[in-house]
């Protein structure tokens, strides 16, 4: 097996069931992530990108109404088959998690330093004072000035950007080889967002951790990611290196997203994608994008297009792009 391979997700499915219906939030998802690589997972709300992260962290799948299937090999071991106890040792240790809202990932009644020190105390059985010095080191690493005083302060004394830095420090305290960041900058202002993204790239360069970055913002993807997977209605519809995706998008949905994005300095009229995303519980056969697709034809109604390799490292789930390949 490839040594660089950090995460190998195969046919991941996550369904939510109720009496009347089943919501296929993530449906047959496969992707890989290498060491030191930043993979962007983009899509609109409800496309299953956050459910993917929750499934990988096994935060769902434990209840009767939740259904999880597939394989997710992390450093050679299948996360989906792990017991709860085994997962507890991995979460926060080998896999760090950065959530969207830094306020809700920090405990208001413990000092920031304490919360970071908890990570080495839990996972490496570090003594209290050693854990504290690790916490200080982490705060320094994420660029919090005056970190010794700051470590003794509480979350409400931190501003939004500082809180997100603290959350990143916490995620890094276990020295993770995989970092999952779910919309890490969505709650922040642009100038602060630029600082945090810069920090994440810098930390990736230092630690060589793999980063799975969930975002809805194609601009963020273009700035920091190496590779991109575009999700639509629970499936990956296109996957490619960042330059390739932005310059030669193949799937009509990716093309639509790029055309509907306002660009500074461009006078071109935006071309929106018509309609709205499908309900995940009322899915009919065939391609899920067909109703909104300007190029849809008969085959799209009946046959679901598989994720097709169209070039080295470039895959697209569209009948048109596979047809074009066959005609060559």
């Amino acid at each position: 097996m490839n040594d660089d391979l950090l995460l190998d997700v195969r046919h991941l499915k996550a369904y939510f069931r109720s009496k009347q219906r089943t919501v296929k939030a993530v449906d047959d998802l496969s992707f890989t992530l290498k060491k030191g690589e930043i993979l962007g997972l983009v899509g609109e709300s409800g496309c299953g990108k956050s459910t993917t992260t929750k499934a990988l962290l096994r935060l769902i799948g434990n209840q009767r109404k939740e259904y999880l299937e597939g394989e997710a090999f992390f450093e050679g071991e299948d996360l989906i088959k792990k017991s709860d106890k085994q997962m507890q040792k991995i979460r926060g240790n080998k896999i760090g998690f950065i959530a969207q809202n830094p306020m809700s990932s920090l405990n208001p009644v413990f000092t920031i330093g304490n919360q970071i020190a908890e990570v080495p105390q839990m996972h490496q059985r570090a003594a209290k004072n050693k854990a504290w010095s690790i916490a200080l080191k982490m705060l320094q690493k994420v660029g919090i000035s005056d970190h010794e005083t700051r470590a003794k302060q509480y979350a409400h004394q931190f501003s939004g950007g500082m809180k997100q830095r603290a959350v990143i420090a916490m995620a890094l305290a276990g020295n993770p080889s995989l970092l999952i960041a779910d919309e890490p900058t969505t709650a922040l202002d642009v100038t602060i967002q630029a600082q945090i993204l810069d920090l994440m790239v810098k930390l990736r360069d230092e630690t060589q951790a793999g980063v799975l970055l969930i975002t809805h913002d194609l601009g963020v993807v273009a700035e920091v990611c190496d590779r991109v997977a575009v999700m639509y209605a629970g499936k990956i519809v296109e996957q490619a290196p960042v330059d390739e995706l932005f310059h030669h998008p193949q799937h009509p949905y990716t093309k639509g997203l790029l055309a509907s994005m306002p660009k500074i300095g461009s006078r071109k009229k935006l071309i929106p994608i018509s309609g709205h995303p499908p309900n995940l519980y009322e899915m009919q056969g065939g391609c899920l994008f067909q109703e909104r697709c300007p190029f849809a034809f008969d085959r799209c109604k009946n046959v679901e297009p598989p994720l097709h390799k169209i070039a080295e490292n470039h895959q697209s789930a569209c009948h048109l792009s596979s047809e074009r390949m066959n005609s060559f």
Partner: peptide
């Protein structure tokens, strides 16, 4: 100037000379 340069642009090969503002509001 800083605000314009801080905006993530969907253009991967754009030069990444950013004006990084220090600190927060």
């Amino acid at each position: 100037q800083a605000l314009l340069s801080a905006i993530p642009i969907a253009e991967p090969q754009r030069s990444k000379n950013k004006i990084m503002l220090k600190g927060e509001i």
